[in-house]
Design a protein around this nucleic acid. Structure first.
Lengths: 337, 337
DNA sequence: CTGAAAGCGCTTACAG
DNA sequence: CTGAAAGCGCTTACAG
C-alpha cells in the first residue's frame, strides 16, 4: 500500500530521477513529462518518505525546542512564536520539556535525537553557558538566556538584571520604600539563572535608591508557579511591605490572589509588579503591571541564529539582544491607569 | 566527524552487526565483546542516526500532536500531559498548531509528514469525524473530541453536552433564572464543534428547568479568548443576567474582568462559570467555578489508543470516554466556598 | 554467539 | 532534458 517514488515512476513510465525532479520542483523538466508525472503522483497519492529523504540529504527539517514547562504561560506563548517562525523556513518543531532539571538539560544538549534534528533551541534553567558549551554535541544550538558577552555559544540575550531593576524602580518611583521580592531560589542555581539575575536587578535598584535589602522582605520559592507566589505573599503580610516585585507573572498572580483573600487593597496598600507579560495579567483584577519582553523577537532571533548555522545568510554575532518595556497597569497605578 | 556504526565496528575490531546488537541491547552478546564495543562506543561518542534507523525499521518513534493553539492554557496543559505520556513509551512529540483552521486540519490529517511520524493526535475544531475519516491517510490517528458513538475513527470522547448542562444546572441550582451564555459561534462550524455541543448542553438545561433560551442573553464570539469574553460580557450587562455560562475558562476570565471593571459584584449579582479548569481560574479573584475535564486521562487514553494501533496490546473500542467534575468556587459560591 | 550482505526510499553526481 | 546506479546509515534475515 506504501507508494514509493519507484512506483510512481513505473506508473508514469519514466525514471525515478524524473519523478524526483518533479517532486522537488527541479526546473529542467519538459512540460509534457511534468504533467504526466504530476498525474501519476496524484493518482497514487504519493507522499515522500521523510526519513529516507532526511538520511540522504543529511537534513531533516526538524528543530527541537526545549523549555522548562509547556504549561507555563510564558513558554507556551514563546513556543507558539517559535513554531510560527520555524514554519516560515519550512521547519517543524519538536518539543521537549526539561522541567528545569540539570539532568534533562544535559541530555538534550548532549545530542538527544542527534542526526534527527537539524538544530536545537534551549532555554536552560539549571546549566550555564560554560557547562552547556562543554557537553554539547555538534548539532547547532541556540540558547535563550542571559546577556553575558563573550560567550562562545549562540544565544538570544535578554537583560534580566535590567528588567528586574526597571520593575523595582517603577515601584520606588511610586514612593514605596518597603519593597519586597518574591522569587529568590535556594540551593545551587546557575550563575545565569533567572532567579539569580532578577535578584541582582532588584538589589541594584534598592542600593541605587539608598535602601537596604532586608531579608525579612525577600522570599524564596520552590518554583515560579502561582501557588508559590500566593504562599510567599501570605508569609510576607506580617512584614507590611508596601510593594512587591515578583520574579515572574505567575508568582505575581498568586500574590494578587493572596492579597485579595487577605483583603489588602492593591495598589493602595501594596503595589505588585511581575515580569513576562503573560496574557492572564491583562485580565486579572487588578490588571498586572509587568515587564514585557519582546517574545516575538526572541523567537524570531533564535530561529534566525539557527538558520545562519544551517546555511542561511552570513552569521551575525553569537549574541543577539532582545528588549523589553515596562507595562504599568492597575496593580501599581490603580484604576485610573 | 560523523561517527557511524561502521566506524565503531572498525575501532573495536568487530562486525557492524555486533555493534548494532550492543546498541540495541540484544542479549546474546558475550560479555567480553560487549565491553569492548561499549568502550569504542563511548570513546567515539557514537550517536545513532535516527533517520537511518527510522527508514530501516519503518518506525520513527515520533508522534504528532495537532492542537488549535499552544498558548491557550487548556491545550498547553494538555500538551504537557501528552508529552509526558509519550515519553513513557519512548516517543517524542512533534507539535502542530492548526489555529482551528479547516485548511490546516486537513493538511495535518491528509498526511503532512507521513512516514516521518508513526501516529497523530488531533484536536479538530473545523472538521468533523466524517470529513476527517474521508481525507486521512493510513497513519494511525486519534481524535480528541466529542462523544459520538459508532464513528469509525479512534477518538477520546469528552461529553461536552453534559459538561455544559451540568455547569448550567449548577447556576440554576443557585436560584438564578436569567442565565446568559457566552461562546456561541457564527457561521459554519463542525457539527461536533465545541461551541455547538456546549450550546446544546446549555439549552438542554434551560429547557429542563422550563426556562426559555433568550437570544438577548446569548453572545456569539469570534474566538475563545479572554478579550472576547470581556467584550461579550460588556454587551450583556444591559440585559441584567444573574448568571453566565462561558463556554471555556478563558472567556469566563474575560467576563470576570468586565464585571470587575463595571463594578458588578460576583457572584452576588452575577454568578459566572466556565469549562476547562485552567490554572488561572484557581488564582483569579474571585476564583472561577468550572467544569474540570480529566486532562491527564485525555492524554493517557489518546497515547494508549495510538499505542494499540502501533502494535501495543489488543485494540479496545474506538471510542474511549473521559469524565469531568464540577468544581464550584467563588465565582458562583462566593467567599464562603 | 558472530559476520557478510541486502535493502529501507530517497537524492545526486555521472553519463548520455 | 532524462536515465542507470551508487550510497546515505542503519537493521535484519540468512549463514555459519
Amino acid at each position: 500500500m506504501r507508494v514509493r517514488l519507484r512506483d510512481v515512476a513505473e506508473h508514469a513510465g519514466v525514471s525515478v530521477k524524473t519523478v524526483s525532479n518533479v517532486v522537488n520542483g527541479y526546473v529542467h523538466v519538459s512540460p509534457a513529462m511534468r504533467e504526466k508525472v504530476q498525474a501519476a503522483l496524484e493518482e497514487l497519492n504519493y507522499r515522500a518518505n521523510l526519513s529516507a529523504r532526511s538520511l540522504r540529504r543529511g537534513r531533516s527539517g526538524l528543530i527541537a525546542l526545549a523549555v522548562p514547562a509547556l504549561d507555563m504561560p510564558y513558554f507556551a506563548e514563546l513556543t507558539r512564536f517559535v513554531v510560527q517562525e520555524a514554519e516560515l523556513l519550512g521547519w517543524t518543531v519538536l518539543v521537549d520539556q526539561t522541567d528545569g532539571l540539570r539532568e534533562r538539560e544535559q541530555v538534550v544538549a548532549t545530542g538527544l535525537r542527534s542526526h534527527l534534528i537539524d538544530g536545537l533551541i534551549l532555554s536552560p534553567v539549571a546549566m550555564d553557558y560554560a557547562e552547556l558549551s562543554a557537553v554539547r554535541d555538534e548539532t547547532p544550538m541556540v540558547l535563550l538566556g542571559e546577556k553575558i558577552g563573550g560567550a562562545d555559544i549562540d544565544h538570544v540575550a535578554f537583560d534580566n538584571v535590567a528588567a528586574a531593576r526597571v520593575a523595582t524602580e517603577h515601584l520606588l518611583s511610586l514612593g514605596r520604600t518597603r519593597v519586597a521580592a518574591i522569587g529568590y531560589q535556594a540551593g545551587v542555581v546557575a550563575r545565569s539563572g533567572v532567579a539569580e539575575v532578577r535578584r541582582t536587578g532588584y538589589e541594584q535598584a534598592l542600593a541605587a535608591a539608598g535602601l537596604p535589602v532586608r531579608a525579612s522582605l525577600t522570599r524564596t520559592v520552590a518554583g515560579f508557579q502561582r501557588l508559590e507566589g500566593a504562599r510567599a505573599m501570605d508569609s510576607l503580610l506580617a512584614e507590611r511591605p508596601d510593594a512587591v516585585l515578583c520574579f515572574n507573572d505567575q508568582l505575581a498572580l498568586g500574590a494578587l490572589r493572596a492579597l485579595a483573600v487577605a483583603g489588602v487593597p492593591v495598589p493602595d496598600e501594596v503595589a505588585v509588579i511581575g515580569i513576562d507579560d503573560i496574557e492572564d495579567g491583562r485580565f486579572s483584577s487588578p490588571t498586572l503591571s509587568t515587564i514585557a519582553p519582546d517574545k516575538a523577537a526572541v523567537a524570531r532571533e533564535a530561529v534566525r541564529l539557527l538558520h545562519h548555522r544551517l546555511g542561511g545568510p552570513a552569521a551575525p554575532s553569537r549574541e543577539v539582544s532582545v528588549g523589553f518595556e515596562l507595562v504599568a497597569r492597575e496593580s501599581t497605578l490603580g484604576r485610573r491607569g
